[in-house]
Structure formats: C-alpha cells, structure tokens
Design a protein around this nucleic acid. Structure first.
Lengths: 238, 238
DNA sequence: TGTCAATATTATTTCGATATTTTTTCGACG
DNA sequence: CGTCGAAAAAATATCGAAATAATATTGACA
C-alpha cells in the first residue's frame, strides 16, 4: 500500500493503473464493474471514481450508460504517442541540461548506475526474463528517464512527459511479451547519459530521439506480428 | 444540455468545468461537496465522478480525506503553461500547415471570418464588454485556434493542446475581469491567419508565439495588480 | 492566560439498494 | 430463413444513509 493511499479510491486508482499499464488488464477489454468491485474489494463509488481518473490518464475510455473499457492500443496511436513523446522529452531534457545543478547530476548518475547494474547482465539471446527482474528493470528505466528531465523547471512539461511515458510503457510491455531478447538498449542509455553529463544538449536530444524511435520500431514489429496472429486465429474460427 | 450528456456525471462534469474555467468558481476555493450537490442537483456519486475527471484536466486538486479545491492560479504556473502551450501549439500548427487540405482551409477561413465579425467592433477603449458578447468572442476565439491546428494529424498533440488551451483560458479570463479594454488582438489573429493561408509555417508559428506571449504578458500584469490589491485588503484586515 | 486533551461538530468517503438503460433472448410473422 | 419486436436478463448509473476521518470547541490544568 502506497503512502498516498488515503482513500479506497486512491488505492483502487493505483492498482487499476498498474494492472492496465503492465497488461494484466488487456487493451480494449471491457471493464465489468461488478467483477472489478469484487476483484479489488471495493464498492461502486470508489471504483467509479478511480475509473474516472484513469480516463484523464488516457488509460480508460467510457461511453455513457455503456460502461468502461481499457483504452485500446493501435499502431497509429503508437506512432502518434512516440512522436509527441519525443517532442516533449527532448524539450524537457534540453531544459534540464540548461538548468540542472550538481544535485541533479548526482541524481542522474545514481539512477544510471542503478539501471546499468540491471542492464549489464540482461540476456542478449532470446531467453525469457524472469518477471521479477523485468519489474526491476522497468522501475529503474522509469527512474533513469525521470531523473534526466527532473531539472527541466517546468511542472507542466513534466506532467505531460509522465503521461506520455506511461502510454509508451504500455506499448513497450506488449513487445516484451512477444519478442524476448534485448537489443543493446544499454548502449543507448549510456549514450544519452554521457551526452547529458557533458551538457551536450543537442547530442543528448538526438540520442534520446534515436532511443525512442528504436524502441517504437521494436514495438511496431511486435504489434504487427501479434495482429498477424490474431488474424490467423479469428480467420480460422470464422 | 449537451448531446453527450448521457449521464448525470457527464453533465455535472461539463457544468463544473465551465464554472471553473470562466471563474464562477474562484481559483483556490474549497469545493464543499454537499453544497455542490445541491447547486448542481445531483447526488454524491456523479459529483465525485465529475471531480475525479476534473483532476485529470488539472482544474481540480484533491487531498485524501480533506476534499477538493479549484486548482489555484499563480504567476509561476502562468509562465509555465504559456511556454509549454507555445511549444505544443506551434508544433501542431506547423504540422497542420504541412498536412492541411482544402477542407481544412475552408474551416479555418470560416472560423476566422466568424471571429473577425466579433472582433471588428470590439471596444478599443476601456468600456466593459457585455457578458453575452464576451462569451461569443470566447467561443469563436476557441474555434479559430482549434481550426488552425485541426489538421495536425496527431490526436495526442490535439489532446495536449486542448488541455493547455483550457488552462490558458482560465488565466485569460482573470485579466478580462481586471483590465477591460482590448489590445488590437484582431491584428494578431489576422497575422496568424494570413501566414497560415500562405502556408508560411515559420511565420505562422512566430506570429502564434507573439500572440501567446502578448496575451500572457497582459494576464501577468492583471494578476500582479490583483495580488497587489489582495495584499492591501488582507494587510488592512490583519 | 496558554496549552492540551477530550468531546462535539462538520465534512468526506463508502456502502447497499434502487432506478434506469442497454443487451440478450425468444417467438411471431413476413 | 431472416428479421422485427416484445419480454427477460444483465449491466450501468444514481441515490440516501451509515461509517469514517478531519476540524473546531470546550473545559481542565499548569
């Protein structure tokens, strides 16, 4: 239980958000209120409050009198999210490199080291990654990217960045379940890190764009493969 | 009643949003649930659902077990919102000028003409503007700026733009209540319009930045004046 | 007089049940 | 056989009251 779970609605919001982002609740699936209320052990009121908040995070969609769905994922939206995220993320990184002080540098360095510790013995082959290690990597990847932009000096930019990061994470998790095996993502992180520490804003942003577009490309392939499979399956049944 | 008010929660959400944006519910004020439920003639459930959604729009803030407040306005946030809005709005306009077709041009032209019809006989002096005419201007200003970016081809960019436009509108409404009298905002709109129609993306974006920064400056002055007054008042009482 | 704790009050949060709407089922009819 | 419509079933949306937490008040004590 998080410290900020003062109310049941708060707790349910966080639980639902996690379950949507990591894919435990499948994209596009119907969210049956009674079922959720039982699963999360809450009543209608906090549940609906949580769902209303998730609409603002673009993780849930609703249609009046017809209920709630997990927001669907699509190739088009992947491209859209990736492009807008690159815009926001580079703007924030640029500002952070301009404004960041020594404390920021320490935070970034610490976050990078923590991430590096996990990434250095990631399987390059297509071994499956144990879930626990995956969660550690997710947490440290998130923390590293958050640390980079934390000195941007713009709460609004950070707010939008967080929203887009979360959207991207949903997509990335899809590809992790399909194409196991990691490209050398650590080199990309190090390139961003080095350029940032050298206060080379232009290069840091370029490396970030490259990192994001490569990730997006990987997800795109995974989703295309999935869509193929789905066609097979539903084609076979029809 | 809007067509999309399928539920009481929807209707309450829209009403509350309007009342916050136009300032009928003062920035920073406590939102007493029982009072609101009476005012809007709804029960707790749809009311809380509406408030939860407004948190996502950054129009309402909450603290667990302590309730809800209208999100405060501040000079710092004004600067932050204005800067990020300029970034998003110019990116979207740039894309729209690249992608927009003939239908888009017609929409933009129509929106501009409608706006021009109101702006051409705005009082340049410091006469107070009748509320009805103000609402007409607000609606057409919103429609014009929305039409400009409507061909950006990026739902996410539009989504973020809408969020930021709404934030800006809150601030702008403050200044309209303080410094009546209009600068020649129509010339700025026309400059954006002309550059857009000539597909001069660079100039259109520059004119947009200028328009936004001038508006922000006006709001800044108005808020500084207000803060001064507030100090006087609370200082006098203490 | 000032501070602290116990109590009273007020406000938020949550539940359980009801009303309303949508979806499904089933049978009649073309 | 398909489709249209009415009845049944299922699900969502809403209310009103109870439970819970925060705030204000009061009075005892230093």
């Amino acid at each position: 239980m998080s410290a900020s779970d003062k109310t049941l609605a708060d707790r349910t919001y966080r639980q639902l958000r996690g379950d949507i982002v990591n894919g435990r609740l499948a994209a596009g699936s119907k969210l049956k209120l009674e079922g959720l209320a039982q699963d999360y052990e809450v009543g209608m009121s906090p549940l609906r409050e949580a769902l209303a908040r998730l609409m603002g995070d673009l993780l849930v969609v609703s249609e009046g009198q017809r209920g709630f769905w997990v927001a669907p994922l699509s190739l088009d939206e992947l491209d859209d999210v990736s492009r807008v995220r690159a815009l926001i993320e580079t703007e924030a990184l640029n500002a952070a490199i301009r404004n960041g002080d020594a404390a920021w540098e320490r935070d970034v360095a610490a976050a990078f080291e923590a991430l590096a510790a996990v990434e250095e013995h990631l399987p390059h082959t297509s071994e499956a990654l144990p879930p626990e290690q995956l969660e550690t990597w997710e947490a440290r990847n998130r923390a590293f990217h958050a640390a980079l932009v934390s000195a941007a000096g713009s709460p609004m930019l950070i707010k939008l960045r967080d929203l887009l990061y979360q959207q991207s994470e949903r997509y990335r998790r899809v590809s992790l379940n399909v194409s196991r095996g990691w490209r050398n993502v650590h080199d990309e992180h190090r390139a961003i890190y080095d350029a940032t520490m050298q206060r080379n804003a232009l290069r840091a942003c370029r490396m970030t764009e490259l990192h994001l577009s490569r990730t997006a490309e990987e997800v795109r392939k995974a989703m295309a493969a999935l869509a193929q499979d789905d066609d097979q399956v539903s084609g076979g049944k029809a």
